[in-house]
Write a protein that binds this DNA or RNA. Structure first.
Lengths: 199, 199, 199, 199
DNA sequence: TATGAATGAGGATTCATTCAT
DNA sequence: AATGAATGAATCCTCATTCAT
């Protein structure tokens, strides 16, 4: 493989990433139906027609952005938890998960928040493809909560799945477009930890 | 005012309601940017051109649907709380609020869920107008929680506003388009009550 | 029905006819795949977007143009034959049919030639719908030839359907875009009559 | 010229042929305006950009396909006639011509039918170039008919050029995309022979 | 009060073409 | 000899809006 081959390979990959970033931003701002390829192309410094070379269709791009969004959020969440030293307190682990989730959600690249903004208005065929990714993400949170319960920092008087859904819903709802309205990160973390802790 | 004027006035009002209902449905399904006046008109059994008579522009319709959505949800929430007899337990009042919120959100007319689906992708000028409605809704929940705290059924170790935001966020996140994924109403209520109750 | 209603009804109909005429011209010149709605709209003195009001889709317009083309040709053919007095010679009837077919095909409005130019490159779903029209047209020619055979002016040593197909094919092939290359109408008629007559 | 140059030259020639074959197929199916270089490239197992190496523009490819189509048909027609032994009956020669024409037209490689499908919708500049090829093809048929007349198997009561145009038109009209609708080859041949034979 | 008819802007997608590699 | 990547124009279609009736 010559150096020029490497260069051209990475060029396509770089453009693809630029498009995904621009798409995430537009989708986060305007949702699935409100986002336009024109604006996405502009933000990616490309002409609309050129998008087709990387993503054949708007829905292809959406699917890629969704996968990119949840997967990166899941990896960030898992990494945040994994980074907690073994000898840390169980509460630290829980706090790390919450922080990891919030960080992904409020990251400036919008990859995760694009997902939150799009999921509920997706056409069925896209949603079907997306469910698997979402499920893997939910699994990570479930594991975190289960471990927390074993370690005695998560209450055991409620169904864990329902708890997980409410926690994730509450966290996702902080991903508001107007950061002014967003409650302070620290307050959210402490409040959630309090709600979760057993009586 | 003649009787025919009265009749025609009430006809206009009825049509307006039909449009709002159709709009709520479309907005709930496709969000602000993805909903089209044509489909709304179809669902309201009207021609697109006729919409202008009732709502001059799409944004006017959106604003009306938003106001209609939050206000009706707020009234439903307030009514549910007010319906609780004075001699009921404080926990009953809290449960009534949660149930009222969920009922509004999962109502078949989509008026409340349309709001949830739209808010985050609204253009700025619409959002500005909408904030006041949202604030009044939030005020009701804040009152409910404050009273609950006074009555000893809501924990006092957390900031009440942050708590309110998380509770509302968690509740709103149950308004998913695919009712299959939605956790059972009863489980949501009991879990939330547990989380709220003081240790 | 008021006069204004009549006017508005006929306005839509008139526009529809203008579009069909423009479409026939474009389709005759460039075929199904080569014709553009832009040019059709221009020729019909409309904006492209306005076409949708009369024909929802390009394929709808094509289907209408096809039906219009064959049906009008069939009617012209049938009328030409019917116009022959009962006491005319059988040869006159045959000649009238040939002339009627040619007249339809070379008419300046291109309605019939548009069909000839489009049929073979139609997508399958359009072709399927079109077959019925084509069959009715072929039936008229078959009747003409059968009557001619009964009257002794059409040879009886060949299969009538095959003969019909070849005659129609030969006639249609005179519908060339460059009228220079087109053989003289009279010569075509006399030659065909000669070929058809029994030995 | 080195052997590798020879090899690469012949490779180019082979690719050229593959492109022409693919192009003929697409043009036969969709006509001049409806065929796309992308599909042609796909069918030729190439990327669109690579076409330019062999044919600078779409119209260059079209021109080549047209020339290829008529010329090969003309050669097939001439060869079919030439293959008839000198001592065969004149009717055999005529039949051979008809069969040769039909064989070329219905050949699976679509080279000839692509021409039939394209000619009438060609832009003027392409048509001008094409006329010469077409004329040479017509000349062959004219010769065949003239010889037939000399030999007493073609009627002499009609203009030969008009006759030729009608015969060619009738034959070409059998090149339909749906082979179901196509009349049986044998029946076409015998019917045409009958029509041509003098009384 | 509503419809019919049209507009112009913008939507996504496809197209032939170009050019560096 | 062919590919990868991009362009700009054109494709059809949908949109919200307007206005005479």
């Amino acid at each position: 493989m010559t150096s020029s081959e490497i260069a051209s390979e990475s060029k396509a990959a770089r453009t693809r990433q630029r498009i995904l970033a621009a798409a995430a931003h537009e989708f986060a701002l305007h949702g699935y139906g409100g986002a336009s390829l024109r604006l996405i192309a502009d933000a990616a410094d490309l002409k609309v027609g050129s998008l087709a070379f990387h993503f054949a269709t708007k829905d292809d791009l959406v699917a890629a952005a969704l996968a990119d969004g949840v997967d990166s959020a899941r990896e960030a969440l898992a990494a945040a938890v994994a980074a907690v030293p073994d000898d840390a307190t169980p509460g630290e682990r829980l706090r790390a998960a919450i922080l990891g989730h919030l960080d992904a959600l409020h990251a400036s690249d919008d990859r995760a928040s694009a997902v939150v903004r799009m999921v509920e208005t997706l056409p069925l065929h896209l949603r079907a493809d997306h469910v698997r990714h979402e499920r893997r993400f939910g699994k990570v949170w479930l594991d975190v909560l289960a471990r927390g319960r074993d370690d005695g920092v998560v209450r055991d008087d409620v169904d864990l799945r329902v708890l997980r859904d409410l926690v994730v819903g509450a966290l996702n709802s902080t991903s508001t477009t107007s950061p002014v309205a967003r409650p302070a990160r620290g307050a959210v973390v402490e409040t959630l930890l309090a709600l979760l802790s057993p009586r």
